[in-house]
């Protein structure tokens, strides 16, 4: 089953779809990209990147613990990420700088627990790298189904709270004065972020979730100011990055994590450059 890349795109794609594992990877990637693109947009608006990163990393002990106990990895990812979101939402507000220190502490403790689970479950170092950096093989049909259900739930909830969330994200004080329950909306959004992070971790690995959660949204925000166009663009970019990444990873000896992050970063750089040029032209 050696991969041959030819100039005939149709045959390349047919080659990709020949193997069930690749079909599953593409299905999972598509679901994850849509969810991450949409939720990532709000995350970037709300400046909660650090919380998102931490939630993604919390998935790692979940997956490691699930493997140790012999449960489906997907449940571990979702269980721990949602738990992590609840913990972060329940943290005392307090001063912003202390809060980020606490999030950092939660993050490193979660990673350390992951290490403990891995060492309790002897000898699966390759599995550890896959959990952290993603893999395109080994996504099961059950996992795809779990991802689909979680993704649909997350998107429906997001659609319901989208308007108040947008309001609260852009101007929390005015939103509060107008009767939006800012804290509740914020906590709900953290839960959604947990779901998105858990799903994305299963494709890109815990450490590289940002490639789909931040980069597409940041790119979209640099290209358009309208929220609807922004969310759409963010989803499209996430999809393109995932498909390209998975396709190229199949034909190359290097792992998917590298390709997905590279494509995402390249698009981000292009958009930033375009933005800078446009701003300069505007200023003249």
């Amino acid at each position: 089953m050696t991969a041959h890349l030819s100039w005939n795109l149709v045959s390349d794609v047919r080659q990709l779809l020949q193997f069930p594992f690749m079909v599953n990877a593409l299905r999972a990637g598509t679901i994850v990209a849509v969810v991450a693109g949409a939720i990532g947009y709000f995350m970037v608006l709300r400046r909660e990147s650090f919380a998102g990163h931490t939630l993604a990393l919390v998935g790692f002990p979940g997956a490691a613990g699930a493997t140790w106990l012999g449960v489906n990895e997907g449940f571990g990812f979702f269980g721990f990420c949602i738990l992590g979101a609840v913990v972060i939402a329940a943290l005392p507000g307090g001063r912003a700088r202390e809060q980020s220190a606490v999030i950092g502490t939660v993050q490193s403790f979660a990673l350390a627990s992951g290490l403990l689970f891995v060492s309790l479950y002897h000898g699966f170092l390759t599995g550890l790298n896959d959990m952290l950096f993603g893999t395109i093989i080994g996504i099961t049909s059950t996992q795809v189904l779990t991802l689909l259900i979680a993704g649909v739930i997350a998107l429906v909830v997001l659609a319901v709270i989208a308007r108040p969330l947008l309001f609260a994200s852009i101007d929390a004080d005015v939103a509060r004065a107008r009767g939006v329950r800012v804290r509740v909306v914020g906590a709900l959004f953290l839960l959604l972020l947990g779901i998105a992070a858990a799903g994305t971790s299963q494709v890109t690995g815990s450490l590289l979730v940002f490639a789909l959660l931040v980069a597409p949204a940041a790119t979209a925000i640099r290209l358009t100011a309208s929220p609807v166009a922004g969310v759409t663009l963010s989803v499209v970019i996430a999809l393109v990055v995932t498909w390209l990444g998975e396709g190229v990873a199949y034909f190359s000896p290097y792992p998917i994590g590298f390709w997905v992050t590279t494509f995402a970063f390249a698009l981000f750089l292009l958009a930033s450059g375009w933005r800078a040029l446009a701003d300069r032209r505007l200023a003249c």
Binding site: V44, S49, H53, L125, T126, L128, N129, F133, L207, L208, F210, A211, V214, A215, A218, I221, P253, Y254, P255, G257, F258, W259, V260, T261, T262, A264, F265, F268
Partner: peptide, 30 residues
């Protein structure tokens, strides 16, 4: 956002180096 996007890519590069390193030293692996 800039920090997040950049370090995600830097980590991606790390994975690439890991792949190169693993390919070269078959025994050292992960």
């Amino acid at each position: 956002v800039v920090i997040g996007t950049t370090f995600a890519w830097v980590l991606g590069l790390g994975v690439l180096f890991l792949a190169i390193f693993t390919a070269r030293h078959a025994t050292g692996n992960s």
